[in-house]
């Protein structure tokens, strides 16, 4: 109810209402962007760009989704545009560097979960983003399709292929087949 009131005020040009809305979603937005970019700096820069874009487009926000979901959708598209401008090779190098830096910042190198993060980092953005949105944030395939402007079926196949790729990277298939053989 409070959010709706603030959105209406923001649409009328009330900057304080917009600031309150943005402040409320800031942590969620930056944490989402860290998962997508694996870089604190890029996440914060993108959050600022998202704010500028949201301010520009607030008139077109129809309120059918939560304000934070709308911000996530804007941020995702800004990130995809940003990566499209980079060359593929440079992108992979930067991605690897970002993960190495993240590991150093988190001061962990031997923990199991970092392997999963590295495996996710090896996926392309087109595959990684739907997996994060679906399996971490719990958005439906239809919602993700709307956010990324792709068909629902495409989202499903990207998530499916992404999980297969993560399994391969973590060598889970080998582990499972060993486990199956030992239980026979």
């Amino acid at each position: 109810m409070e959010e709706k009131r603030l959105i209406e005020s923001a649409k009328r040009g009330d900057d304080l209402a917009f600031a309150l809305l943005f402040q409320d979603s800031y942590q969620l937005l930056v944490k989402y962007l860290i998962k997508v970019t694996f870089s604190y700096e890029t996440a914060e820069d993108l959050a600022q760009e998202t704010m500028a874009r949201a301010l520009e487009k607030i008139q077109f926000y129809n309120g059918s989704s939560k304000f934070s979901t709308w911000l996530i959708s804007i941020a995702t598209n800004l990130f995809i545009d940003m990566t499209r401008k980079q060359k593929r090779e440079n992108r992979y190098k930067e991605q690897e560097q970002s993960i190495r830096k993240l590991k150093w910042q988190l001061q962990t190198s031997d923990e199991d979960w970092i392997d999963t993060i590295e495996a996710l980092g090896k996926l392309t953005e087109e595959i990684r983003i739907p997996i994060i949105l679906k399996h971490y944030y719990g958005y439906s395939y239809a919602e993700i399709g709307k956010m990324l402007d792709i068909a629902e079926g495409t989202v499903k196949s990207r998530v499916h292929n992404g999980i297969i790729a993560v399994r391969k990277e973590l060598r889970l298939d080998e582990e499972d087949s060993k486990h199956r053989r030992s239980t026979k």
Partner: peptide
């Protein structure tokens, strides 16, 4: 595994 990994990243990221 993916959820756990991302969850840990969330917990360790101070924003």
């Amino acid at each position: 595994k993916i959820k756990l990994g991302l969850g840990h990243l969330d917990e360790n990221s101070k924003v």
